[in-house]
């Protein structure tokens, strides 16, 4: 299923300077009971965001109106744990189109790429600069340029490049998905399947 194309995103960012943010925090298991992909943003970071009586926790970043934007900036090893794509859906559904961190867990990164959320891995030093910039000015603007594979702190002009393979980059900029690609080589797959011993 095609998704939104991603080219250049300019936005403020929401900082979450915690390491090892796991997918159980991003979306707790009790909210995985839906059979359609909608409404997951309401429960993004549910137990950090709300008390058990469903009142908002005032000290959590998503409940602080001075922070907003389409970029989420997380600490090292973001998205570890469960393979639930619901975590990426929740990030997307809340309104984020890009997650920046100094390190991502594998499956979360793949899940993001598969639904049109761009995971941007930067150096630990650059991540600290981004956090520092948001601390100075919660409305600080960042440019995430996928064609040039570059993220820039607009106030200072400092930038860093990031990696993404050419195939996935093409998918993201064109809004294609893997199934479109695979269905085009279905004949080769069928031939391969016939040779499998079990």
């Amino acid at each position: 299923m095609a998704y939104d194309k991603f080219n250049v995103l300019t936005s403020s960012a929401v900082p979450l300077p915690i390491e090892n943010v796991d997918t159980d925090q991003i979306i707790p298991a009790r909210f995985l009971k839906a059979t359609e992909r909608k409404g997951f943003g309401d429960n993004l970071f549910r137990d950090w965001r709300y008390n058990q009586d469903n009142t908002p926790k005032v000290d959590f970043i998503l409940n602080n109106p001075i922070y907003s934007g389409q970029i989420l900036v997380g600490g090292k090893n973001f998205g570890s744990g469960s393979s639930r794509e619901h975590a990426a859906w929740a990030v997307y559904d809340y309104g984020f189109r890009c997650v920046i961190s100094s390190f991502f867990a594998d499956i979360f990164r793949n899940n993001c790429l598969n639904i049109g959320v761009l995971p941007v891995q930067v150096s630990a030093a650059f991540l600290q600069k981004i956090f520092g910039e948001i601390e100075k000015d919660p409305n600080a603007q960042f440019e995430v340029n996928l064609p040039e594979q570059k993220v820039t702190i607009l106030a200072t002009g400092e930038s860093e490049s990031f990696d993404i393979n050419k195939y996935k980059k093409g998918n993201m900029t064109n809004g294609f998905d893997d199934i479109d690609y695979l269905l085009n080589i279905k004949g080769d797959i069928e031939k391969f399947a016939e040779q499998r011993p079990f």
Binding site: S83, R84, I107, N111, N114, I179, K186
Partner: peptide
């Protein structure tokens, strides 16, 4: 290995998955 739901759909549809080699 574990996969996300888009990949579940991928395998149901094509019996293949697209993965960079670890």
């Amino acid at each position: 290995f574990g996969i996300g739901t888009s990949e579940v759909e991928m395998v149901l549809a094509t019996q293949c998955i697209m993965q960079p080699k670890p």
